[in-house]
Structure formats: C-alpha cells, structure tokens
C-alpha cells in the first residue's frame, strides 16, 4: 500500500524538500524507509542545501504547541498531524485525506494556516504551532466559536476544527472581511455535510459584531 504524500506544503516557511533531499528522496515510499538510502554515504553538502542529516530512526524533538514546549519521539517521516494526534493526543486536528486536499488538519504555524498532514513533525521545530485546542475550548469559547455554535456551522463536525482554524486566521489578518473573503478563507476546507453557508454567516456575524480580536 502506497502512502502517497506529494504536493507542496501551504507555508513557504516550511521546507519539506530540504528533508527529502537529506533522506535520499525516499520519504514517500513506505516499507523502504528503514533502509538507509544508497546515497547516504555522501558527505553532507551545504551547497546542495543539506544542513542536517536526520533519521532514519526515531528521535526526540521539541515542538512548541499552544505555547508549551512538548517533547515527542518520532521518526523523520512522521507528519506533524500524526505527531499531534497519535503522540500528543491532540485529536481536535482531524485526519481526512492525508494529502493536503481537504483542510481538516489545518493548524497555525507562526499564525499562518497550514495543512499539518503536509508538514513533517521535524520541520515544525522552531515554529509556534497552534492547534484548535490552543485556539478555543468549550470553557473558553472565542467569539467565532460561539458564532459557529449559534449559526449551527457544524453538522457532523469533522471538518469544523479545520474550518475554524482557517477562518480564525483569515479574520485575524482581515477583521473587515466580507462574504468573498470568508468564502476564500475556507476554499481549501472540504465539508461533505454542506455547512458552508452557516460558516459564512457565523464569520460575518463576528465581523459585524465589531472586531473582538478573533485568534
């Protein structure tokens, strides 16, 4: 079974390419990952963009998540999404397509929304990671969260945390967002239940209610 992970990450700040070069471009093929690449004996080559050689085994890294430093031991191929869900029990971030197509796994990296299935956990080191749990909780609702509930913007709710992350980032950078803006904000978030109109209404109600600093 191939585990196909291609396509660029959302954020230019995160270079997954650097890792793939370093690991001999085998990261996408499961089953081979434990074998050192044939080219691994080549010396690190700064000109080739290789700054660090990591793996293939698990190693302990530090990630700054929701303001706290967390230590997690993962193999280089583990995505930020899997690290959050499987290793840190932060399951509000959902796994749906695992290939950057649906937006359900959206988190903020230094305040920008990225699909965490397309970011390796290793590459998230040194960045401020915010997950849905860091954005709001049932006891600490944000205005946008309350608006989502009020406008019934979640049906099954599986896409909803991702929607929330995308929308929160959009409103933070554009507090005067209009319909077209909020539509664009979740253009990369798939909702199979069809909650979009309610999501738009929720977001616009926050805009109209005065910018109460959503993020």
């Amino acid at each position: 079974m191939k585990h196909d992970k291609h396509g660029p990450p959302d954020s230019r700040a995160i270079s997954r390419r650097a890792f793939i070069k370093g690991a001999g471009a085998i990261a996408a093929t499961t089953g081979l990952i434990r074998t050192p690449p044939a080219s691994a004996d080549a010396a690190p080559d700064a000109q080739d963009g290789i700054v660090e050689r990591i793996g293939p085994g698990a190693q302990t890294i530090e990630l700054k998540i929701n303001g706290e430093v967390k230590r997690v031991t993962v193999e280089p191929r583990v995505t930020l999404l899997r690290a959050l869900r499987d290793h840190l029990n932060l399951t509000g971030t959902k796994l749906v397509c695992d290939r950057g197509a649906c937006g359900a796994c959206t988190v903020h990296l230094d305040g920008k929304p990225v699909t965490s299935c397309m970011v390796l956990a290793l590459d998230a080191r040194g960045h401020e990671i915010t997950t849905i749990e860091g954005l709001l909780t049932p006891d600490r609702m944000s205005p946008l969260g309350a608006a989502f509930v009020e406008h019934d913007a979640a049906q099954c709710g599986f896409c909803t945390p991702g929607m929330m992350m995308s929308m929160a980032a959009a409103l933070a950078s554009n507090p005067k967002a209009q319909l077209e803006d909020v539509k664009r904000a979740v253009a990369g978030n798939i909702c199979r239940c069809g909650t979009y109109p309610h999501v738009f209404a929720a977001a616009l109600s926050v805009v109209r209610g005065g910018n109460r600093g959503e993020s």
Binding site: T91, G92, T93, K94, T131, I132, E133, L136, T137, P138, M141, G145, F148, V149, E150, D152, A153, A154, G157, T160, P161, M164
Partner: peptide
C-alpha cells in the same frame, strides 16, 4: 443551539 455544538466546534 445543538447541545453538543461547543464540543464539535472546539475539536473536543
């Protein structure tokens, strides 16, 4: 509002 609305939208 849904009884569990807050749990859904917060990822809890």
């Amino acid at each position: 509002p849904r009884v569990d609305g807050a749990l859904r939208v917060t990822g809890a």
